[in-house]
Each structure stands twice: as structure tokens, then as C-alpha cells.
Amino acid sequence: MIYLILVFFLLLLMLGAAVYAIVQKDLLYAVIATGVISLVLTALFYMLQAPDVALTEAAIGVALTTIIFIITIRNTVRHEDDYNKKDDLKSAIE
């Protein structure tokens, strides 16, 4: 019975993090929500009796995917509606 409640709680947490990741406009928070999805997925893989898959998902999904996303955000925009207003001004002047 406790097992069932735990599994349902983890599934609800995963779905809530997925909806938050695509609604939020600040991209850094969306990337951290993607990391939370991978973390819950690790626990679910362990409960479905697959320890090798859980190890791989924990090492790749949580650590390496998050760092590559963060470096991309560092080199591009931070918010979803940001863009360089230089071209907008140029077309407004012409």
C-alpha cells in the first residue's frame, strides 16, 4: 500500500516538472526541471527492477545534460522572449 502511494507521488512529481519546464519563460528554471524529470526517472527505473538502466540515467541525464544546457544558455539568451534588438531598430528606421 505504501509502495503504491510512493509510486503515484513520484509520477505526479514527474508530470508537474514536465509541465513547469515547458510553461516557464526563464530558461534556467526550465533546464533544472528537466534535471528533476531525470532524477525521478532514476528512482522509477530502480523500482521496476532495472539497476543498470538507473545508473546510466543518473550519470547521463542529471549531470551531463544539465551542464550542456547551462553552457548553451550562457552563450545565448536567458529568457525566452529575448532577442537582439539591433535588427528591430534597423528595420524601424528604414
Binding site: 514527474m14 508530470l15 514536465a18 509541465v19 519546464a21 515547458i22 530558461l27 526550465a30 533546464v31 528537466t34 524529470i37 531525470s38 526517472l41 541525464g61 545534460t65 544546457f69 548553451t72 544558455i73 545565448t76 539568451v77 525566452e80
Partner: peptide, 29 residues
């Protein structure tokens, strides 16, 4: 199945490129 559908919605509807790549990652999960 809901995770796959949420990821597909993000990949088809959003306008920022990083959001589209986040959607692809959610489909994989």
C-alpha cells in the same frame, strides 16, 4: 504516454529553439 505528448507539444508549438530541444529531451525520457 503523457510525457511523450507533453514533449511533442513543446517541440511543435514553441518558438524558441532551446525550448524545442528541451521538448526533444522530454520525449526521450
Amino acid at each position: 504516454i503523457l510525457l511523450i505528448l507533453i514533449g511533442l507539444y513543446a517541440a511543435l508549438t514553441k518558438r524558441s529553439l532551446i525550448k524545442i530541444v528541451i521538448g526533444l529531451s522530454i520525449i526521450d525520457a
